[in-house]
Computed example of a mutant assay.
Amino acid sequence: MATITNFLSRSPSSLSTFPKIDPACFQPASFIVSSFTKRRPPPTRLGISRTKFVTEATAVPTTRKVESDERVQQVHSIKEFDEALRAAKNRLVVVEYAASHSYQSSRIYPFMVDLSRTCSDVVFLLVMGDESEETKELCKREKIDKVPHFSFYKSMEKIHEEEGIGPDQLMGDVLYYGDNHSAVVQLHSRDDVEKLIGEHKADHKLIVLDVGLKHCGPCVKVYPTVLKLSRQMADTVVFARMNGDENDSCMQFLKDMDVIEVPTFLFIRDGDICGRYVGSGKGELIGEILRYQGVRVT
């Protein structure tokens, strides 16, 4: 069993616990993402119809009713759009680019409204691409030609985008990119990891470190489970997360840990790495956590 602090200063090959892997084999998120991509309904190309979108959304028979107290802000021009991004500062901004003639746009919109009510630290915007020439110019600037399209921004910078996604994927993306309030500790460097380990040597809590990449589909997929477990197991388990492509220190940490696939979960107790799980299976992750807690799983 290896002590993580010591491990960080030595070559991975000095550990007998883990297989020896060439760091040059490390793969970016695209190595995994393509394997998990689900078939989605084809997106709709932007048209010129100007029917009001909210009316269209609520009129779909199988769509839940959208109430009038929604927190989704509709923007009508490039100026309004840029002002909304600027006002959000470093908060996550989720933008749905939609069109009044798009059935898929009207289907997904109520789910975004629901998320806006539960994720108070996230700003939600709606852009109707076929509303006016001004919104068409905005879509052109942001390179949007099909809807529904979701873009995610922080500090006025686009950090992620998706096309034609469903409610589960939307929720996963919002939680993954906008998590500033949960019990999951956000780590941004190797020093953060060492500090967290030092804080929990005395209480002997198991640390579950979720290591991933920003644009990794499986990392997004499993993260709602991580959030849920962090609340349910708060008394006995500490959950933490690091995105390897956030900065050079994080990327070096992944290489030092021999992480070549993501997500990888490292299990740490009393300063020692006691195991790892590679994958996004919810049941498998829960089983591994229970096993390293000493709970017999049959």
Rank of each mutant, 00 (worst) to 15 (best):
C274R: 12
V60F: 02
S14E: 13
E80M: 03
R269F: 07
S34A: 13
T63D: 06
K65R: 14
G178W: 06
Q73G: 03
H101V: 01
V75S: 01
A57M: 06
I197M: 07
K136H: 11
T5Q: 13
K228Q: 14
P28S: 14
E142Y: 10
R190D: 11
V208S: 07
D235I: 03
G164N: 05
Q74K: 10
E284N: 07
M257K: 00
F152D: 03
H215W: 11
L92G: 06
I289D: 07
A87Q: 13
R241D: 06
N180E: 13
P43M: 11
D191Y: 10
L227G: 06
V295K: 10
I268R: 01
A99F: 04
L266H: 05
V60R: 12
A84L: 03
F7Y: 15
V262W: 02
R39K: 15
C25T: 15
C25G: 08
V93S: 02
S68M: 09
F152S: 06
D69K: 01
S182I: 05
A24I: 00
M171H: 12
P224H: 10
S230H: 07
A183N: 14
G172E: 13
T264F: 02
D272F: 08
E199M: 12
I21E: 00
Y176C: 03
R71Y: 09
S30K: 10
S11N: 15
A24Q: 14
A87Y: 05
M242Q: 07
S35A: 15
L175V: 12
Q27I: 03
E80K: 03
G287Y: 02
L266E: 04
L126N: 09
G244L: 14
V72N: 09
V259Y: 00
R141E: 12
F253S: 05
V60A: 04
R141S: 04
M1N: 10
E70A: 02
E137S: 13
R231Q: 14
E80P: 00
T17K: 06
E284W: 04
A99L: 03
R86L: 07
F152P: 01
S189Y: 11
I108C: 11
V66D: 00
D272A: 08
D121K: 11
V193H: 04
R86G: 04
K89V: 04
A234L: 11
L125E: 09
T63P: 00
S189N: 09
A84E: 12
G178V: 08
T17C: 03
G172I: 00
Y277H: 11
K20Y: 02
V222Q: 07
S77M: 01
Q232N: 14
C250F: 02
V222K: 07
F18Y: 08
G178I: 09
H149Y: 15
F31Y: 10
R91S: 15
E96F: 07
F7N: 13
R91M: 10
Q252S: 04
F267G: 06
P23H: 06
S35D: 11
D173Y: 04
S13V: 07
S77I: 01
I268Q: 00
D245F: 00
L125A: 12
S249P: 03
A59T: 06
V66H: 07
M112A: 14
K20C: 10
C250V: 02
P23M: 06
K255A: 03
G47K: 05
H215V: 08
